[in-house]
Amino acid sequence: MSDVLLPKNLHEVWKIFDKSSETLVYAGGTDLLVKLASSRVPHSTPNVLVCLENIEELRNIRETDGRVRIGACVTHSRLLSHPLIRDNFPVLPKALRLLGSPPVRNMGTLGGNICTASPAGDALPALYLLDAELEISSQKGSRFIPIGQFIKGPGYAELQSGEILIAIWLDKNNDYTIHHFEKVGQRNALAISIASMAALIKLSSEGIVEKIRLAWGSVAPTIALSSEVETVLIGKPLSQVVLNEARPLLNQAISPIDDIRAKAEYRRTVAANLLIRLSRYNGHDKV
């Protein structure tokens, strides 16, 4: 049996860490409790489970100096309905709408999606493109780290003992006119992605790519980026021919695996098709 503690503030979290050596931290529980139930956690009976969902300061969204700070325990549902998120970072709600199901989104949190560090984490491609910076805290203080440096591999995030992720910072200053996310899974709801792609694009009035950022999920140990693909698209229209030409570069940037959801080869095809589907924006910046 494990004790379950629900600290009300960070001070109480640090006290728990001081007292207990074997703690497992969770927020919404939609990943950890599934793993605990199926004994897929290394120390499957931790002494203390620490649930962060009652910590008010981790549940706020606020704006400071052109940056938006999202508390790590803000749920996906909250993010979906929040005007600051909807208006400034549309790529994020586009992704979150496809995450799990309504009750999973009512429970699951943005911080949880990051710390779980799944290659299939639905929020992650968008957060990589938005250059999310993570605020990690411990009793000793805070440090900031870009999301791409924090997530090291499947299920492995760079969180030291005694540390928790407390907030996600996003820069409001982006002038991308297209915020795009698509995910392919076995069904619409409650699906773990087979491959996904987020894109931020700025087109000139003639439909030429001025700026583009791309990120793929579920096709590499972590989110896959490709500056080579991005570079080759700059200065060109988003035509099928142009996008198709970038295919070999994309193939070098990803390293998908076979698993119960799909074969690696299928994932390569889907990742490329997701790229080519950007041709829907050819010449205009709305679908």
């Binding site: 379950v4 503690l5 529980g29 939609t30 599934v34 199926s38 799990g100 009750p103 999973v104 009512n106």
Partner: peptide, 28 residues
């Protein structure tokens, strides 16, 4: 028992949640 079917849905503070993925202490 893994959050994928919704049969255990309850409302907690008027929001749907999955009772198979919550622990008793969280209800306080």
């Amino acid at each position: 028992g893994a959050g994928e079917c919704g049969a255990c849905t309850i409302l907690v503070d008027n929001e749907s949640r999955l009772s198979c993925l919550m622990l008793a202490a969280q209800l306080e």
